[in-house]
């Protein structure tokens, strides 16, 4: 069974709010950079970057991070997912890095992303922006900017459609 949680307008509004929160918390764009986590986070980061440009008139640096190599659940016995090349074309030393992801769940992806970032340099601060927080954290991690908190059961699935990949914007709850 599928239930739509967010539609296009709602997602847009949330991203606009998160953009303002980022600017407010960091008092502008100085030293800010965005890093989107493959795959959904990359498109969300791009949209936030665009909104910052609309507001502040400048492009903040943006990178793409595939966290596959840092996961703690790499199973030598399991089939691997396709990997996208990471691309962080700037130094992150001393930067305020805003990680962008679509869904925050166990916190393990965020842990992996933070480990990866540490190998790239020594950021001044790492912040986390997510579209959905569905609970069930397994690590002490929380987002600085949360689009929407949706309590879920473990056997439910959250599916995020973004128009860059799926041609539409929608967040759906799937119950088996």
């Amino acid at each position: 069974m599928e239930k739509e949680l967010l539609n296009y307008e709602e997602i847009e509004r949330i991203l606009t709010r998160i953009t303002y929160e980022i600017l407010e918390k960091n008092k502008g764009t100085e030293d800010i950079c965005l890093i989107g986590i493959v795959t959904g986070g990359v498109y969300l980061a791009e949209r936030i970057r665009k909104k910052i440009k609309e507001n502040e008139g400048l492009n903040v640096p943006m990178g793409i991070l595939d966290i596959s190599f840092y996961r703690d659940d790499i199973n030598i016995k399991g089939k691997k997912k396709e990997i996208k090349p990471t691309n962080i074309p700037f130094q992150i030393d001393g930067k305020k890095v805003v990680l962008v992801d679509d869904v925050l769940y166990t916190g393990r992806s965020t842990r992996a992303a933070m480990d990866a970032l540490m190998d790239f340099g020594r950021p001044a601060e790492i912040q986390l922006a997510v579209l959905i927080d569905r609970g069930h954290r397994e690590l002490p991690i929380m987002a600085n900017y949360t689009g929407k908190y949706i309590p879920t059961a473990r056997n439910e699935k959250i599916k995020v459609y973004l128009k860059e990949i799926s041609g539409k914007d929608s967040v759906v709850l799937i119950t088996q």
Partner: peptide, 19 residues
């Protein structure tokens, strides 16, 4: 395709991943 992702790793300062 996967090799392409690893080639990027080899350009980093820290060329080692904990995979």
């Amino acid at each position: 395709n996967t090799a392409r992702a690893f080639k990027e790793v080899l350009t980093r300062d820290i060329k080692k991943v904990p995979t």
